[in-house]
Design a protein around this nucleic acid. Structure first.
Lengths: 187, 187
DNA sequence: CGCCCCATGTAATAAGTTACATGATTGC
DNA sequence: GCAATCATGTAACTTATTACATGGGGCG
């Protein structure tokens, strides 16, 4: 089963959602580490329904709009998600296109590489801001009396995102500095 | 053009290589951020030859073995690579399956999650060791008198890898600690 | 008047993974 | 004797991306 399906189950394990909700949450709540388009969500959701991993929970109908079909995770789906969660995970690579470009920075004029680095840095600063806001929200709704609050897990992942963005920004700064030195003292 | 092709050009921009070399280098030198299988390398290399981005540089034949076809980047390929390198890059997400699992840690017993975290930590410690060795090698062959030495770019990327692995290890440690607290003081 | 949001989905294409196929040499 | 390394590639399959299609409501 593809990890995309587990990503959907991951969200549905917390609350019932429509396909549209799943798409939205992946592109916001799971921002740091997953995303999806409608093309993937709807067909997979239908298949998962067939396989009994999710079930229709309710349909909200506004006459002028397609019926909003809300799904919930089934006990089978929950068990399958738990099984997968504690199963060994194979190594993953970063595969960031921009790192590949940085690997080519020796090929191009520093003056042309620096603007790209500044742009990337800005992008990651934006993400950092969002994650910092998010972690504040999470801390506010966190129920400390419940050690099994899912919010605790959310916080861990967002913290990863925060540290990652900091790393990226620092790295951009270092590379920008190096390239500027190259401009100032060409040998 | 897919970023995989640019990854191949990235390697070929430094030295002529065979398809086999490209595959090997992606799975070692570019370890932190890219990888490839033979299935991808050979067909793409043939296409790139057709399109004039690379050209056959020489063939080494040991009679009992398939001819080793070494390719070099063409001036067109080089220009295309440079063009791509300084072109804006769209945002990338992390998409690490293990983070998805961590997001589900509230669903499972801490006793079952901790071994997975320890395993992941070990994996990233192994990568860290490799990158630290690599950066030492790179620093040794680095030619400081040449500010356009490609090794400088390699170092930047490996440094990213090092910081990333450190981040991952620290994050694993933090999460392990939290889960252990959960075992010790269940409310 | 145009653009974005909601809410469902389909179709076509591109990219990535896993498995297979050949076959002599080198090292345990 | 068995596995790994070198060296090329093909075939089948699974995933992911991009574009398209519908259509009313709300906002500037």
């Amino acid at each position: 089963m593809s990890s995309f399906r587990y990503a959907m189950l991951t969200l549905l394990a917390r609350e019932p959602l429509s396909g549209y909700d799943i798409k939205q949450q992946m592109n916001s709540r799971m921002g740091p580490f997953w995303k999806a388009g409608s093309n993937q969500v709807y067909p997979e959701l239908a298949k998962m329904d067939d396989e009994g991993l999710v079930a229709l929970y309710g349909v909200e109908q506004k006459d002028y709009r397609p019926a909003r079909k809300v799904y919930q995770i089934t006990e089978n789906g929950r068990q399958e998600l738990i099984r997968w969660t504690i199963e060994p995970t194979k190594p993953e690579i970063i595969r960031d296109e921009f790192l590949l470009k940085a690997y080519n920075s020796w090929l191009v004029k520093p003056e042309e590489m620096i603007p790209q680095l500044r742009e990337k840095k800005k992008e990651h600063e934006g993400k950092l801001t969002i994650y910092l806001e998010k972690i504040n929200e999470l801390n506010e709704i966190l129920d400390l009396s419940n050690p099994y609050d899912p919010i605790l897990s959310s916080i861990s992942v967002v913290e990863f995102g925060i540290e990652y963005e900091k790393l990226y920004i620092t790295w951009c700064n270092n590379l920008i500095k190096r390239l500027q030195d190259k401009i100032n003292e060409p040998s």
